[in-house]
Design a protein around this nucleic acid. Sequence first.
DNA 1: TAATTATTTAAGCAAATGCTTAAATATGCC
DNA 2: GGCATATTTAAGCATTTGCTTAAATAATTA
Lengths: 125, 125
Amino acid sequence: MENNTCIRQFADHEQIKNCKAKLKTAQKSFGSLSSVLALAGNEVRLKIIYLLGDEKEICPCDLADILGMSIPAISQHLKKLKDGNIVETRKESQTIYYSLNHENIKILKPFFKHINVQTLKLETA
Amino acid sequence: MENNTCIRQFADHEQIKNCKAKLKTAQKSFGSLSSVLALAGNEVRLKIIYLLGDEKEICPCDLADILGMSIPAISQHLKKLKDGNIVETRKESQTIYYSLNHENIKILKPFFKHINVQTLKLETA
DNA sequence: TAATTATTTAAGCAAATGCTTAAATATGCC
DNA sequence: GGCATATTTAAGCATTTGCTTAAATAATTA
């Protein structure tokens, strides 16, 4: 691996140095941030997050109904969201209520706005 | 598929109806938004986007150097970003310069801020 | 204690992802 | 035209993803 010619004679060494430095400083952030984005980057999970942004809490069974999917499929998505600290749970007898971990999801807030704005645009268009 | 008992006797029918309606209105947004998030949800691509946010333009070869990856690997990531309208290209003789499509990336701007803020926190901690 | 309900977990599988290596394009230079 | 450089494309392959079905937990009710 690694050697594909292209040792760019005219490489912008200054820029390369700069970029490497920037990555090094922000290093820690990329892993955690990209995994949050990857979680939100699935349409089903994005919908779940979006709904929980409004609804306070929903159980897996109702989510399956809402999204027209099987319960195990939903449950597996919820597990990922929980492992990523995006949602948390409250148990009430048999039912488990899922809600957003609002602390860890501040990052995603702009998206809700984006969805709503875009929806509005489409409606008025 | 589909029948996993759990036709929740105590299902919150009001909430279910609400949620279905909300999804229906915002329907169009979820597909496009989740695919942008999925693109940004890869650590390598997130770094590329982040760097392009500062650097105006970078060529594949320099990116490979900066990220310590092979050129084809980088090229394939860039292709995805271009297909997703996140980056655009400018050709100058042999070199192809990649830059952000600032119009289509407004959504991701909050993340750059997030990375920078978090980095600052880690530095001063 | 047995049957029902809500949820999770496990196993299996098709499709997608992200790399590798090698070959194909395309431009610049001698 | 022939060779070097910059990039893309293609083929191959291991890993991950996201579903399905079936089985395992856990709490509720009869």
